[in-house]
Design a protein around this nucleic acid. Structure first.
Lengths: 252, 252
DNA sequence: CCTCTCAACATCTCTAGACATCTTGCTTGA
DNA sequence: TCAAGCAAGATGTCTAGAGATGTTGAGAGG
């Protein structure tokens, strides 16, 4: 099937490769329109499904995205910077500022949806927060949007026995946020662990974050510890990988 | 086109959804064989391309992978844990152990390929390591394999003016590795910055890591600083996201 | 008992169409 | 001048095939 002699790549791969090179060489910049199905059919003399397969490769790689009825376009990558350590130093959350204020540069990151409820702890949460028999947790779910686009959602779990009656169980936790309130309750977080992994989004995640094909999510699970190693919060975050760069600074 | 009344999802999505539920409910466990193209054609009465499209959804999500001639199988997720902070504390690399020894649990992570060369610095490296006019860098490229499978490759850049003549320019850097040698040269790393992002792999990366479709890569760019904020090393790592969980521990 | 060969079966690539649905811009009418 | 409507063009979904290529296991032969 190879039309150019000993080239053993399938047709769709050769078409995808040539488009990829054109993108990486700068021939097509972010936001530019790429040759569509009909262009590739005419240019390479292939069937429509083959042209679609070639474009599918680029979409799966996160290099391009298609808009039905409009065309195929080069994607752009302009991430936020999330600092994992200084953000949580006491000067930050002790002074009335949200810990997220360090994340935003000139663009504004805002909370889109908040829901607070008291629930039974999921199994993996129960295992980490050593809860009493049948003890429930306070669950805080939030979604963050940047320039109209959702970029992250986060779910926090806190033991009811710790936070009952405080502003943590309200939608607005007040100045300094959850960690300032925990400090007032005598459970000042002194140590954090963040665990990070990445995978492709589930259907729900892709929908909630408005993620296009070929974009992974980053999962961060943060555990906050008070004195004597008492875990007081688990925060599971799901980030649009195309919107974030994480940064961790530390000394040897 | 929906055959079951008011279900507006396309056929391939409904097939994919039913398979996904079957996987997540445990009906198919890791490594199990899923119904293949022919099974889906017979079971749902669809064309081959439609059945392929359904299986493609699961492959893109990283839930399944196909082996040509054999079938489609449920993927497993059994990651390594990479600790980002304790690993680099002086007790670790000062005592003759490789900094990677903290990564392995019972399985063995080994270096597969090593290449050392002297090159002109890429633009983004030159910008960070404040190099002299025309100064070259020592480039160390390594690939790491776990149980025969490559899971990461790393490229380190160090200023030639710092490392010339030391064991860092050799394939074997000796006990304690690069950081112990830097300390001996008077450039002991005292501070680190790691920047993390995630995206789908390029063709080359997918080939080098043996990555199957639907698996992202994690990119870690670590900068090591000696006294007075002098950057002495940039290490760009590319990880198979299905093989790693990153962990960062730090105090408030 | 072991090894080699081969047929059955699996996915992969590709064709040539059809209809559906959404976007965009031009044309037409108020 | 502005807005509604419409048509062209774009991608999305789906069919019904065909040949290519890789895997696997059973059977034949040593």
């Amino acid at each position: 099937m190879a039309s150019t002699g000993d080239d053993r790549r399938p047709k769709y791969q050769r078409i995808a490769d040539s488009l990829r090179e054109a993108i990486q060489s700068g021939e097509y910049g972010p936001g530019d329109r790429l040759p569509g199905e009909n262009d590739l059919i005419a240019e390479h003399g292939v069937a429509r499904m083959t042209a679609r397969q070639a474009l599918g490769v680029l979409k799966d790689e996160g290099l391009a995205e298609s808009r039905k009825g409009a065309g195929v376009f080069v994607r752009s990558f302009r991430p936020l910077r999330r600092r994992g350590i200084q953000r949580l130093s006491q000067e930050q959350w002790g002074s009335g500022r949200s810990i997220w204020s360090a994340d935003i540069e000139t663009r504004t990151l805002t909370v889109d949806q908040v829901a607070v409820s008291e629930e039974a702890a999921p199994e993996h949460v129960d295992r980490v927060l050593d809860l009493g028999q049948g003890e429930t947790v306070c669950v805080r779910r939030r979604r963050f949007v940047l320039d109209e686009k959702p970029v992250m959602f986060a779910t926090s779990y806190l033991p009811t026995s710790v936070v009952a009656g405080s502003a943590i169980t309200q939608k607005d936790t007040g100045p300094g946020g959850t960690y300032a309130r925990l400090a007032e309750l005598g459970y000042k977080p002194v140590h954090f662990r963040e665990e990070i992994r990445s995978r492709m989004p589930t259907r729900d995640e892709a929908q909630q974050l408005g993620i296009s094909a070929g974009t992974p999510v980053i999962l961060i699970c943060r555990t906050a510890f008070a004195d004597e190693g008492r875990p007081v919060e688990i925060n599971e975050m799901t980030l649009d990988a195309a919107s974030y760069v994480l940064e961790y600074d530390f000394d040897a």
